[in-house]
Design a protein around this nucleic acid. Structure first.
Length: 889
RNA sequence: GGGCGGUUAGCUCAGUUGGUGAGAGCGGUUGACUUACAUUCAACAGGUCAGGGGUUCGAGUCCUCUACCGCCCACCA
C-alpha cells in the first residue's frame, strides 16, 4: 500500500466525501413507516452570521446525534434553516447604503426591502456552506427561512389566533428604546452593563420658599418631570408632602408626593418622577394619576416639549441643561457614580426607557402549561440544573413586547380603519390575508401597522412551522415532537422557553423531549470570544490547517458536559494527532491484510473458540467499550463518548493489540480480528470524525477487493450491536497480567539504566499454577514486547543474587544484573552524576536565597526555579536508592 | 439584591446511586528514528480531593458553616 501517505490530508478528502454523500442523497429523509423517526431542528443561525466556534460546537453535537441515530436505523432528520435576524440584517444593509450617503428613509420601504432580499440572496447562505464544511448531515432539501411565504403564513396565523384569544394586546408602555436603531427592544435584547457616570444633585425651588435637592443620573429628563417623590416613612420630609415645587428651567409647578418605593438612603431621599422616561416612574405615575410628558424624539433628540433645548441630542442637552442649572445656582454638586444601564445588543448604544405604543403577548397564560410539562418531566434538561433556571424564569415571566420599528421582518397583520375610528371604535382589524378594504365598513381608508414582529416571534414556531403548519401534513405527525434540542445557554429564554409555549399552545404537544444545553466557548483566559477582544479562533482556520474531523473531535473531547470550554489553537492538535493515529493504524492494517484470508464469514468467526488470548481480549475490550459508548451517547455525555473512543483506539487497539498482532500478522485469526475490530471501530468513530472514517472505509473495501454498491457509505452502515457473549472479564484480567508484567519489566530496565532495546534475561516466579500456564503460553509476547533474550518461568522461584525485583499480585519478576551492567563502572557513573546534580541544586538554592534575585525576578521565574529544585531532589533520591541497591552486593 | 454552579496533579477536567491502592489528556523530566505513525514510542515524577464541623464501620462523593471564583436574572433616581 505504498500509495497511502503516512500523513492524513483532510483537504483532499473532505470535500470529496461531502459531495459524495449529497450526490447519493444520503441526507434526505422521508416518512418511512417501517422506521422510527428521530428528529432535531437546528437552532437557526442568523443570516448575517458566519460560523464561529460556538456554532461549530453546537452543530457538531447535533451531527453526532444524527449520524449515530441514522446508523442505529432511525429515520433521522436534521431540519436546517436560517432566521432573518431583523435588526442585525437591517443594520448590515443600512451600513451598506450609508456608504452611498443614503438612509433607509431615502430609499423608501419597498426599495429598501428589495435591497435586503438582494443581500440575502447573495450572502444569506454563507453559514449554510460553512456548516457543510463542518460535515453537518442536514436534510438540506428541507432548508427553511423564517421569511419564506409558507413560514410567514404560520406567523400570521399565530398572531391572529393569539389576538382572538385576547393574548395579544396593544398598550402604552415604557420599553427599551434604541435611538440609533430606532426600535423597541425586549428586555433580553437590552443587556445591562456598568458605565461610569455622574450623580447630579439638583435644587428644585419650593413654591413658598427655600428648595429641595434631588439626585439624578439623567438630568435631561428633568424637562419631563411631573412630580417629586419621597418615602412616606421619611421623617425629614414629612411636612413636604402635598406642597408644590417649581420645576427648574420649565417653570412648571409640580407636586411632592409620597410612595414607599423610594429608598431613603439613596441620594437625598427625594426622587424626581419622569413617567414617560423611566419604568419605575411610570409605575408610580399610574398609581398617582400623574401626567406623562415625552421630551424626546425617537432618534434621541429633544422634542418640542423640551422648550429651549428642542432639537438637541440627548447627551448634548444634558450638558446644556447642566450649564443652565449652574447659571441659575441650582446645581448643588456632582459626584462620580457607577451605575448600570441597558445597551442595545446590536449596536451597544445606551438604550432610552421610552413611552410608546407597542404590541404585547400575555405570557402568563402561555407559561402555565410550559411549566407543567417540565415539572412533570415530559421535557428533560441536560444537564439537569437548567431545569431550575427555566422554572425560575417562567414563574416570573413578564409580557413580551413583540413589535419592532424596523422594516425587515414579518409586518404586523393589523390594519387600522380610519372610517371605523371616526365612528368611535378602535378601528383595529387583524387579518391573516392582506386587506384592501375594511371588512366591517368596506372603507378603503385603511392602513397596515407600520411595524414588524420581533424575530423571535417567528423563531418560536420553528419546530412545527418548518413542517408547513398550519397546513395539514403528515411530516408533522411523523417527525413532531422532535427528540432533542441542542443549544447554548444564552437563548434559553429568548427561544427555548418560547418554543415550548408555542408548541403546547398551537400543536397541543411539546416541541422536543429533551433540551441539551452546552457550554460557552471561551478563550484560554476564560473570556468570551468576541471580535472586539480580538481573541477569536476561527473554526474555518482550524478546518484549513487541521481538518474538520480534528476540529470536531477536539471540541467534543474538551467539553465536559455542559461546562464552558477554554480554547487555544494548540488544543486542536489533540484532534489532529488523533486523526493521524486513526490514519496510520488503518494504514498498517491495510498494508498487512490479505483479502483472501478475510473472506471468512464474520458471524461464524465470532462463534469460534480457537481464538488466541490477545484476540479474545481485544474483542472483549471492543464490546465493553461499545457498551460504555452507547451509554454515554444516550445520556448526551459527548465528551465521555469521545474519551472512550480515544482511549480504546489509541491505548488498547494501537498500543497493545497492533503490537501483539505484529508477531502473528499472517495468521488467519489475527487478520480477521484486525479487520473486524478496525471496521467496527471506524463505524463507532464515524459520527465524531465523519470524513476520515469514510475515506478509510472506502479504501478498506477497495484494497480487499470487496465490491460494494456504489452508494455504500459508512454513514449508512448499521451501528454495531453489543455482543455480551464476547465480553469476558476473565480474559480481560488474564491479559492484564501480561500487560502489567511487560510494563514492570520495562520499568525495571529503565531503573537499571539498561537501554530499552537491549535484550536481557528475566525470571518470573508465579504464585500459582494458572498464572504459570498463562505466562508460559504467552511468553513470546512478553519476550518481544519487553525485549528479552529469554524468559525463565517457574513456580516459587527464589530471588537470584544481584537482582532487582518487582512484586505483582500473582507473580514476581526478577532481573539479575551481574554481567548485564558493570557494577563498579555504574557506581562511578552514579557518584559523578550525584556530584553534578548537587552542584546544580546548590546553584538553584543559592539563587532563591539571593534577595536581589527575589526582588528582580518575575514570579514565574521563581516558581520555575522552585520546580527545578524539586525535580533535582527527586533525581537525587533515585540515584541514592540505586546506589544503595548496588552497594548491597 | 435573588438564583445557579464551581473549588481534585503545573493547566483543562473525569470521578455515575458513599466501598478495593484517587484517574485522563495536555504540560514537565529521562530515554528511543523498535520495518503504521516523531502529528510517534517507552518510562518516570506530580494531589492533606479549598478550609472547618457533622452523619457513617467507611466520605472526593451525603449534610452544615466559611472562604474564594464564575455564570444568569433583577436594576435605586
Amino acid at each position: 500500500m505504498s500509495q497511502i501517505p503516512p500523513q492524513y490530508n483532510p483537504k483532499e478528502t473532505e470535500d470529496k466525501w461531502y459531495r459524495f454523500w449529497e450526490k447519493n442523497n444520503l441526507f434526505s429523509t422521508k416518512i418511512n413507516p417501517s422506521k422510527r423517526a428521530f428528529s432535531i431542528v437546528i437552532p437557526p443561525p442568523n443570516i448575517t452570521g458566519i460560523l464561529h466556534m460556538g456554532h461549530a460546537l453546537n452543530n457538531t453535537y447535533q451531527d453526532i446525534l444524527i449520524r449515530y441515530k441514522r446508523m442505529q436505523g432511525y429515520e433521522a432528520l436534521w431540519m436546517p434553516g436560517t432566521d432573518h435576524a431583523g435588526i442585525a440584517t437591517q443594520n448590515v444593509v443600512e451600513r451598506q447604503i450609508s456608504k452611498e450617503n443614503k438612509t433607509r428613509e431615502d430609499l423608501g420601504r419597498e426599495k429598501f426591502l428589495e435591497k435586503l432580499w438582494q443581500w440575502k440572496r447573495e450572502y444569506g447562505d454563507t453559514i449554510i456552506h460553512q456548516l457543510k464544511k463542518l460535515g453537518c448531515s442536514c436534510d438540506w432539501k428541507r432548508t427553511r427561512f423564517t421569511l419564506d411565504e409558507e413560514y410567514s403564513e404560520a406567523v400570521r396565523e399565530v398572531f391572529v389566533r393569539l389576538y382572538e384569544k385576547d393574548l395579544i394586546y396593544q398598550g402604552d408602555y415604557i420599553i427599551n428604546w434604541c435611538p440609533r436603531c430606532k426600535t423597541a427592544l425586549s428586555d433580553e435584547e437590552a443587556p445591562y452593563s456598568e458605565i461610569q457616570g455622574n450623580l447630579y444633585y439638583i435644587r428644585y425651588p419650593l413654591k413658598e420658599s427655600g428648595f429641595i435637592t434631588v439626585a439624578t443620573t439623567r438630568p435631561e429628563t428633568i424637562l419631563g418631570d411631573t412630580a417629586v417623590c419621597i418615602n412616606p416613612k421619611d421623617k425629614r420630609y414629612k411636612d413636604l408632602v402635598g406642597k408644590l415645587v417649581i420645576l427648574p428651567l420649565m417653570n412648571r409647578e409640580i407636586e411632592i408626593i409620597s410612595d414607599p418605593f423610594v429608598d431613603m438612603e439613596f441620594g437625598t431621599g427625594i426622587v424626581k418622577i419622569t413617567p414617560a422616561h423611566d419604568p419605575y416612574d411610570f409605575e408610580i405615575a399610574k398609581r398617582h394619576n400623574l401626567e406623562f410628558i415625552l421630551v424626546m424624539n425617537p432618534d434621541g433628540t429633544m422634542n418640542s416639549n423640551a422648550g429651549e433645548f428642542f432639537g438637541m441630542d440627548r447627551f448634548k442637552a444634558r450638558e446644556a441643561i447642566l450649564e443652565a442649572l449652574r447659571e441659575r445656582g441650582l446645581l448643588e454638586k456632582i459626584e462620580p457614580y457607577k451605575y448600570s444601564c441597558g445597551h442595545c445588543y446590536r449596536c451597544h448604544t445606551i438604550i432610552e426607557p421610552y413611552l410608546s405604543k407597542q404590541w404585547f403577548v400575555r405570557m402568563n397564560p402561555l407559561a402555565k402549561s410550559a411549566i407543567e410539562v417540565v415539572k412533570k418531566g415530559k421535557i428533560k434538561f441536560y444537564p439537569r440544573r437548567w431545569r431550575k433556571v427555566y422554572l425560575n424564569w417562567m414563574e416570573n415571566i413578564k409580557d413580551w413586547c413583540i413589535s419592532r420599528q424596523i422594516w425587515w421582518g414579518h409586518r404586523i397583520p393589523v390594519y387600522y380603519c380610519k372610517e371605523c375610528q371616526r365612528s368611535n371604535t378602535d378601528g383595529i382589524v387583524v387579518s391573516k390575508i392582506k386587506l384592501d378594504k375594511c371588512p366591517k365598513c368596506n372603507s378603503v381608508d385603511l392602513c397596515q401597522d407600520e411595524d414588524v414582529l420581533d424575530t423571535w416571534f417567528s423563531s418560536w414556531l420553528w419546530p412545527f412551522a418548518t413542517f408547513g403548519w398550519p397546513k395539514e401534513n403528515k411530516d408533522l405527525s411523523y417527525f413532531y415532537p422532535t427528540d432533542v434540542l441542542v443549544t447554548a445557554p444564552e437563548i434559553l429564554f429568548f427561544w427555548v422557553a418560547r418554543m415550548i409555549m408555542a408548541g403546547l399552545e398551537f400543536i397541543g404537544e411539546i416541541p422536543f423531549k429533551a433540551v441539551y444545553i452546552h457550554g460557552t466557548v471561551r478563550d484560554i483566559e476564560g473570556r468570551k470570544m468576541s471580535k472586539s477582544l480580538g481573541n477569536i479562533i476561527d473554526p474555518l482556520d482550524i478546518i484549513e490547517h487541521c481538518g474538520a474531523d480534528a476540529l470536531r473531535f477536539s471540541l467534543i473531547i474538551l467539553s465536559a458536559t455542559g461546562a464552558d470550554l477554554f480554547l487555544s489553537e494548540e488544543k486542536f492538535l489533540l484532534g489532529r494527532n488523533f486523526a493521524n493515529k486513526i490514519w496510520n493504524a488503518s494504514r498498517f492494517v491495510l498494508m498487512n491484510l490479505d483479502g483472501k484470508l478475510i473472506e471468512a464469514d464474520l458471524s461464524e468467526f465470532s462463534r469460534k473458540e480457537k481464538l488466541d488470548l490477545t484476540e479474545e481480549w481485544i474483542l472483549s475490550r471492543f464490546y465493553s467499550n461499545l457498551k460504555k459508548l452507547n451509554k454515554a451517547l444516550d445520556n448526551y455525555r459527548f465528551s465521555d463518548a469521545a474519551q472512550v473512543l480515544y482511549q480504546f483506539f489509541w491505548h488498547e487497539f494501537c498500543d497493545w493489540y497492533l503490537e501483539l498482532a505484529k508477531l502473528k500478522i499472517k495468521e488467519k485469526n489475527t487478520q480477521i480480528t484486525l479487520y473486524k475490530v478496525l471496521r467496527e471501530t471506524l463505524k463507532c468513530l464515524h459520527p465524531f470524525v465523519p470524513f476520515i472514517t469514510e475515506e478509510i472505509w472506502q479504501k478498506l473495501h477497495q484494497s480487499l477487493g470487496i465490491s460494494e454498491p456504489q452508494n455504500t457509505s459508512i454513514m449508512v452502515q448499521s451501528w454495531p450491536q453489543v455482543q455480551k457473549k464476547m465480553i469476558n472479564k476473565v480474559t480481560e484480567e488474564r491479559m492484564q497480567i501480561l500487560i502489567d508484567s511487560i510494563i514492570a519489566i520495562r520499568n525495571l530496565k529503565a531503573h537499571l539504566k539498561i537501554e530499552p532495546q537491549r535484550r536481557i534475561h528475566v525470571l518470573i516466579s508465579t504464585k500459582d499454577r494458572e498464572t504459570e500456564d498463562l505466562i508460559k503460553d504467552n511468553s513470546s509476547y512478553i519476550i518481544n514486547l519487553a525485549r528479552l533474550e529469554n524468559l525463565e518461568i517457574a513456580k516459587n522461584l527464589k530471588k537470584p543474587e544481584s537482582s532487582v525485583s518487582k512484586v505483582l499480585k500473582s507473580l514476581n519478576i526478577y532481573i539479575p544484573y551481574k554481567g548485564v551492567i558493570d557494577i563498579s563502572k555504574e557506581k562511578e557513573k552514579i557518584s559523578k552524576e550525584r556530584k553534578e546534580i548537587n552542584q546544580r541544586l546548590n546553584c538553584s538554592i543559592s539563587k532563591l536565597k539571593d534577595k536581589e534575585f527575589l526582588k528582580k525576578a518575575p514570579k514565574e521565574l521563581i516558581e520555575k526555579e522552585e520546580e527545578k529544585i524539586k525535580g533535582l531532589r527527586r533525581i537525587l533520591l533515585e540515584l541514592k536508592k540505586l546506589e544503595k541497591e548496588l552497594n548491597e552486593e
